[in-house]
Write a protein that binds this DNA or RNA. Structure first.
Lengths: 255, 255
DNA sequence: TCTCCTTATTACTCCGACATATTACAGGAA
DNA sequence: TTCCTGTAATATGTCGGAGTAATAAGGAGA
């Protein structure tokens, strides 16, 4: 029994079944299809208004069952990317119907070459929301919040942003701030944007090793929040976002 | 051929098949199921951590096929409400995983009795985002934007907020502002929140006929944007949101 | 020219079977 | 006893096909 269990893998003649190989453990087939189609749409491979080939044809082309294909389409529909009606087919919706702030949609947007204008938009939104979040955090934080932030900050100092552990600590720090706002909507929003912006951190690291030491800026934010000074916290966070934007912008235009 | 084509409709013994009747034209069956389950989760009928009965059992209980049920689950999964794994079943995710800013999730949240704290959170977010959007709009608007806003404002004056046409004009006015920001992310976010907040407008109208004349506040925002005065636009919009919050709050606590 | 109806196409729903992944348990070794 | 390993049970995942319902497009009639 040395024969391969999966005849699709390896030397299969066509490019069909490509969606199957892109799925690791814990990733279902329909998830892989949704990812494939989602990135294709976000990258502009399918333009708004375009009609996808029929269920039977497309499922056959991908070499998957109609069930799996349909479930993938439901996911895209749920995120506002496509809409399907009998007799009319499945068509890509205009961009203003897309849920651009959905975490998965953001991931698809950053899977390929991210659109420069869109990155600018995200940073603009971040520059609006994050300082305000820091202000609220300064007004509402308790001892536990401060402790979490202090621990995360210490971890950031130990490992740098060059390591995965360091970036995790950075996320922890910002998450602790969001938790302190006691606002679920703000948390959902900022978590999405933060994750997306962190994709760009890879670009920054790729461009130049360590642009600048981010610790002092973080410390300023922490001190203001710990002191309960909302205005100072917003100010310091504004600086932090501004610097991140500059680094990212220079890293993206440099290529 | 007078016999009923749908034996489920009418005098069916159990409450099964209820999901079928809730679907009008253009609404598919799996969409109705997703709506049913979504509202059930958002209303707290299923708590985070709860596991739903198996696919076969639940689909049978709802009197729908497994396919339809599964597609509905994919929708909920796409919005971060549930997660399903083989052998473990489908369980409701913790609230911080929910995409609370998804338009459909917001609709589900406001389908029943909306959570007071959540409404407060949304208004807080709105108070952060909308003034900033007005500032950007004041800086970037062109003649077409101004014309659209003026038209919408005139329509608001003609019909009042008591009529559907008036509320549509209100939405048009705010959408025109968002368009003028030239920021897709901001547009997506604000459109979601705005729609959700408009659900609460019904509450306001129900509570007392016409709390106050909203036109002067809108005019102030319009004038500032037309004049290109960002600071004034942000200030005026801040007042607008503040007043809306007061009206909504008094309407909700009054009940 | 416009309205209404017919028709063809497409997505939608259902069914039953099999494959796969993951948990839980039992057995054995340290 | 405790930990690890292998095995079996179970629920989700995937598949293929058949039939239904809804809608857009085209044709008949006014």
């Amino acid at each position: 029994m040395v024969e391969e269990k999966r005849p699709l893998k390896g030397a299969d003649g066509g490019e069909g079944g490509a969606a199957r190989e892109a799925r690791g453990p814990g990733r279902r087939l329909h998830g892989a299809i949704a990812h494939k189609l989602g990135t294709a749409i976000l990258s502009g491979q399918y333009a708004p208004g375009d009609v996808l080939s029929g269920e039977v044809a497309f499922a056959e082309e991908l070499e998957v069952s109609r069930s799996a294909y349909r479930e993938a389409i439901q996911v895209l529909t749920a995120k506002g990317l496509v809409e399907s009606r009998p007799k009319a087919g499945t068509r890509v919706l205009p961009r203003n119907r897309w849920n651009l702030l959905d975490p998965e949609v953001l991931a698809w947007a950053f899977a390929g070459e991210p659109d420069v204008q869109f990155v600018r938009d995200l940073f603009e939104l971040r520059a609006i929301v994050e300082p305000a979040a820091a202000r609220l955090a300064a007004q509402r934080r308790d001892k536990d919040d401060i402790r979490l932030m202090r621990d995360a900050l210490a971890a950031m100092r130990r490992h740098t942003l060059a390591t995965e552990a360091g970036r995790a600590a950075d996320r922890d720090f910002h998450n602790a701030i969001l938790n302190a706002t006691r606002n679920d909507a703000l948390q959902t929003l900022s978590a999405s944007i933060g994750a997306a912006v962190n994709w760009t951190t890879q670009f920054k690291q790729r461009a130049r090793a360590l642009p600048r030491n981010p610790i002092p800026d973080h410390v300023r934010v922490f001190d203001a929040i710990a002191a309960g000074d909302g205005a100072a916290a917003a100010e310091a966070m504004g600086v932090l976002v501004e610097l991140a934007l500059e680094d990212t912008a220079s890293a993206m235009t440099r290529r």
